[in-house]
Design a protein around this nucleic acid. Structure first.
Length: 114
DNA sequence: CCACTGACTACTT
DNA sequence: CAAGTAGCCAGTG
């Protein structure tokens, strides 16, 4: 069975939960190609419309939206904010809070941290 | 197969 | 922090 980089990227992006984001580089790394950040962006370009991709949950590594104003920036920001993602005064997302980590608390849940 | 492109990233000025 | 540079690699024609 073939699993092109592209397909894997799509799977990963579809797995991002609400209120969380991933950087292009992160997605690429999870897809098995730490250097494939640019491919991720290209994929989003061609597939975001045909697949139901939460493309808005993908930002660049600095926590900023890569899209230029008037070309999707405002839309992406609006979608993220509607999911509870907070933006800093400088149009950046606080990745230390919103960056999705597949490990997350899933494995630690056997002990309550409270 | 080759050349070009891109919603990137890390590093250096 | 902004701007420039180099590396990166899959899709497209």
């Amino acid at each position: 069975m073939i699993m092109p980089f592209t397909q894997k990227v799509l799977q990963i992006i579809q797995g991002i939960p609400e209120g969380k984001v991933l950087s292009y580089g992160r997605v690429a790394a999870l897809a098995g190609n730490p250097r494939g950040a640019r491919q991720v962006s290209r994929i989003l370009h061609s597939m975001s419309g045909k697949h139901e991709l939460p493309w808005h949950r993908v930002v660049n590594s600095t926590g900023k939206i890569s899209l230029p104003r008037g070309r999707g920036y405002e839309l992406q920001r609006a979608l993220l904010e509607s999911e509870g993602v907070l933006f800093s005064p400088s149009h950046t997302i606080d990745l230390s809070i919103c960056l999705w980590q597949p490990l997350d608390l899933a494995e630690k849940s056997d002990e309550i941290i409270f």
